[in-house]
Structures are given as structure tokens and as C-alpha cells.
């Protein structure tokens, strides 16, 4: 009888599977995502490599000495131990993070605009106390500009009424406001000494959200040649809430990581962060095969560093608030060894 190995589901629960079952999940994960994203499935060598990583009963795994990558850490800190700057120092000095990020709990550029002076002062103090690069991060969060949270007609309400033109116009109007707000906050943070700006969970509200991030990125690059600009995505696929928006003549709706990366490169971004969400009903083996299959085409053309999102619920790490280190470390090793990523 084939021995059973303790492994994880996408929701973090511990299950026992045989090596054959894990192998089958890896194959299904890559085949299904390849079909969905219209990319090639993983090669047999890559699947074998994943099987070695996932069909192991070890409590922890790691890359080979010398193969380590850079850790950028969007949303650095717990928010509940000490103050925010102490959070950054802790992650710099205790956890070995390479790039720490100052942020506020209402993680949206629109929300930060109203208290940017306080955020700038915190950044300045953080820069005095940290040796690590300190970036400032928030979400573009386009939805904040629609009613009732913002001044623009709500496109999610207009679309079901078949008011497509009005819904599109509303998104364009909101996009312009968002670009202005990202610039406003970024200007203050650069003045306060920030090493970089992070647009996290970009594209959460669809193609207009992504367009705002790219547009702001290009403007910031022109103003600040030295600035680190990270664009991390909300998910693997750009939703076409507008459907016709373009950047450099290319339609953004429906873009997968390879095309998302091309756009970020063209906009002048320093770091691109692909995000592939977890299916909680499948094993972590199934999920890692899916994530690597979808991101692999981007790695083949990358000219800038790629930091994969590998936190709770994305990139092969289970959707649970206490990610088990066995699952986290397996995802970590898999991305580094198979995709040769530049960081997390």
C-alpha cells in the first residue's frame, strides 16, 4: 500500500495524500491553468521537481545555499506591536526582510491623501532609523471613487442597467482622479525620503484600476529616475470592467502575467509582482502547479525584477491567517528553483 504523506489544502488544513495523488494534482493544476491562460503546461522535468518538493514529509524546506532572493514586504508589520516605525525596525532586524514598507491600515491612496503630512513625517522618522530601503505602499483602489464612497457614478450599478457608455465614462473619470492622488501621495513621500512607491493589489477594480497604476508609474518615473516603483497585482487576470482601455495602444482587459509585466516594464516600473489566487478546495500541490504555469511566461521575458506575491491566499500559500511554514517554505522553494524569480 502506498504510504500517505501529510500535506496541505489551499485553506491550510492538513490532509494525507499519496505520492501518486500529489502527482495527479500537480498534473491537473498545470493542465487546467494552461488551458485557461492559453499558455504551455509545465514540462515533465518541472513537474518532477515540484513532486520532489511537495511529496516530502519534511516540516520545512529551503533553497540551496547561494540561491537566495530579495524579500520586499508589502504591508510590513503587525500594526499591533509597538508603533509603525518600530514594526519596520523589527522586520528589518528580526525577520531579515530586505525592503520594508510603511503603510497605514486604510490601505488606499485616496485615504492617505487626507493625512499625507502625518504619513510623510512617519516616513521621515523611518528613514532616520532604518538602513534597509523603506518604500511607501497602498492600493490604487479605484472603487473608492464611485458612489457612495466617492463622487463618481457607480459603474457597478450602471452596468446592470445596460448603461455601458455611462459606466465607461465613470471609470475614466475615476481613473484620472486616482492618477492624481497617487502622484500627490508619492510626491510627498519622495520629499520625506522614501526609497520607493508600491502600488499594491493593482487591478483590483479591473482594467481602469490597472491603467491608473501604469499611468502614475510612468509619470513618477519621469519625475524620479532613482525611485523604486513596485506594481503588485490583485490577481492573475485583468478584469475588463471597462473593456476597451489601452496603454501604449494595447488593450488591458484580459491580460495575464506576461502581458501585465510588459506593461509594467513599459511604464518604467522597477519591480513587478504577479498574483495568482488560491483555490481553497484544492491541494497546495494543485495550486503551486497552477501559479507557476501562469507566471512562467512572464519570467521568460522579464527585464525587470519579478517579486511574486506569496502571502496568505496567493502564490501557493494557503488562505489562512497563520500560514503553515511547511506550505510557505515549499512555495518559496518552488518559485525560486523553477521560475528563477528575483524576489517575493
Amino acid at each position: 500500500m502506498e504510504p500517505r504523506i501529510a500535506t496541505r489544502m489551499g485553506d491550510g488544513s492538513l490532509v494525507e495524500m499519496t505520492r501518486s495523488e500529489i502527482k495527479a494534482d500537480l498534473e491537473e493544476g498545470t493542465q487546467q491553468s494552461a488551458k485557461r491562460a492559453k499558455v504551455d503546461p509545465l514540462t515533465q522535468d518541472e513537474l518532477d521537481h515540484l513532486l520532489d518538493i511537495y511529496a516530502s514529509s519534511a516540516r520545512f524546506t529551503a533553497v540551496d545555499i547561494g540561491d537566495e532572493v530579495v524579500m520586499s514586504n508589502d504591508g510590513t508589520g503587525t500594526k499591533h506591536i509597538g508603533n509603525r516605525v518600530q514594526d519596520l525596525q523589527t522586520y528589518e532586524q528580526v525577520l531579515g526582510i530586505d525592503i520594508v514598507e510603511l503603510w497605514q491600515i486604510d490601505y488606499s491612496y485616496k485615504a492617505i491623501k487626507t493625512n499625507v503630512a502625518h504619513e510623510g513625517q512617519a516616513m521621515k522618522i523611518a528613514q532616520m532609523l532604518c538602513t534597509n530601503p523603506v518604500q511607501y505602499g497602498a492600493m490604487p483602489d479605484l472603487g473608492r471613487y464611485s458612489k457612495p464612497d466617492g463622487p463618481i457614478d457607480n459603474w457597478s450599478e450602471l452596468l446592470p442597467l445596460m448603461k455601458v457608455d455611462e459606466a465607461r465614462a465613470a471609470q475614466i473619470e475615476a481613473c484620472a482622479m486616482l492618477v492624481e492622488d497617487i502622484n500627490f501621495v508619492a510626491d510627498h513621500m519622495v520629499e520625506a525620503g522614501a526609497d520607493g512607491i508600491d502600488m499594491d493589489t493593482t487591478g483590483a477594480a479591473g482594467d481602469a484600476d490597472f491603467l491608473a497604476g501604469l499611468t502614475a508609474c510612468r509619470m513618477l518615473r519621469e519625475k524620479y529616475p532613482f525611485l523604486g516603483i513596485e506594481i503588485g497585482m490583485a490577481s492573475e487576470f485583468v478584469l475588463g470592467m471597462h473593456g476597451q482601455l489601452e496603454f501604449d495602444g494595447e488593450r488591458l482587459a484580459g491580460m495575464w502575467p506576461k502581458d501585465q509585466l510588459r506593461m509594467v516594464q513599459a511604464a518604467g516600473g522597477s519591480i513587478y509582482g504577479p498574483a495568482v489566487n488560491i483555490n481553497t478546495g484544492k491541494s497546495t500541490a494543485w495550486n503551486i502547479a497552477r501559479a507557476i504555469t501562469i507566471i512562467k511566461p512572464a519570467m521568460e521575458i522579464a527585464e525587470i525584477p519579478v517579486h511574486v506575491n506569496v502571502g496568505m491566499g496567493v502564490g501557493g500559500v494557503p488562505t489562512c491567517v497563520y500560514p503553515p511554514a511547511d506550505a510557505t517554505s515549499r512555495a518559496s522553494k518552488a518559485f525560486v528553483e523553477i521560475l528563477k524569480i528575483d524576489g517575493y
Binding site: A62, N73, L95, I97, T328, S329, Y344
Partner: peptide, 15 residues
């Protein structure tokens, strides 16, 4: 479980 696990598994180590 997240940052600590990643930095030990594959992180350069910061400072």
C-alpha cells in the same frame, strides 16, 4: 508563518 518562513527558506537576509 509568512515572512519568517520565506526569509528562512529563500531570503537573502536583509541587513
Amino acid at each position: 508563518g509568512m515572512e519568517g518562513a520565506h526569509t528562512q527558506a529563500s531570503g537573502m537576509g536583509g541587513m
